[in-house]
Amino acid sequence: MANLKELSQREVKFTAGHRACAGCLPAVALRQVTLSVNYPCVVGFATGCMEVVSTIFPYTAWKVPYIHVAFENVAAVMSGVESAYKALKKKGKIDEEIKIIAFGGDGGTYDIGFQALSGMAERGHDVLYICYNNEAYMNTGIQRSSATPFAAQTSTTPVGAVEFGKKQFPKDLTQIMAAHGIPYVAQASVHNWKDLNMKVEKALSIKGPKFINILAPCTLGWRYPAEKGIEIAKLAVETCVWPLYEVENGKYKINYKPREKKPVVEWLKLQGRFSHLFKPENQHLIDEIQKEVDRRWTRLLELAGA
């Protein structure tokens, strides 16, 4: 595993000068992931924030080969790139080892790109798929996705006289990917670079499809001051809203168990998208969230035999 000094000395693949917002944590996630890739690589992107901010023609923030095709198909596109790599390697046209990496936001991964992702996993392509999860369609203006938390306010789940925000709990995509039986699935958070670096390095050492789901808060969509993002990401882990864990060949491992699990309200109260929950009549919604977080955490502990 690379230490911080080594990482800081590596050649940058995703450069500064892109047009992400101040305090954008998906951009930090990209930087951390790409620094952890100590191989030649080809990067593919689903349509989304990071695609838009990094490649406004005639500029590009990518110092490695990059392709964007559409919103829902990055897993299929990179299946094609990986197959081309195998074919050209077999013919002796390529000799170096090249890693194939797909990136999608939660919209491009949980929702519209889910079929292509499932197909890529089932077919066993040697691709690392990274989901930078900011829990809504931030690129198009903060609409709800299936990764958006229960009761969160978004542009399409506004809080009104009779509505309290999103009515559903988020899809547990990490578990769904684990159920594909692929060799490596992990959940990471942008605040813990060391854990994320370990996971990317481990994933790239394994042949076959790999999936890492990274929680990457969005200052605009979650509505918090730009400098609070890392603290909020950390609190998601401390409250067990977003546990850090791996599933390696079906074996679960929880990478971080908070000594004292914090109440979910600690995470909620820093974010404007949950501000309506703090009206006294909405206390029951916070209780529901806590109940669901506890249920999922207990289930994870069981799966990990911990």
């Binding site: 897993a75 299929a76 596109v77 094609g80 081309a84 046209k93 089932e122």
Partner: peptide
């Protein structure tokens, strides 16, 4: 693949890759 959308998408990826 699992759909024609992915069939052409994978073909696009392979073609752009140099195949």
């Amino acid at each position: 693949v699992e759909s024609e959308h992915s069939a052409l998408s994978a073909t696009v990826g392979a073609s752009a890759a140099g195949a």
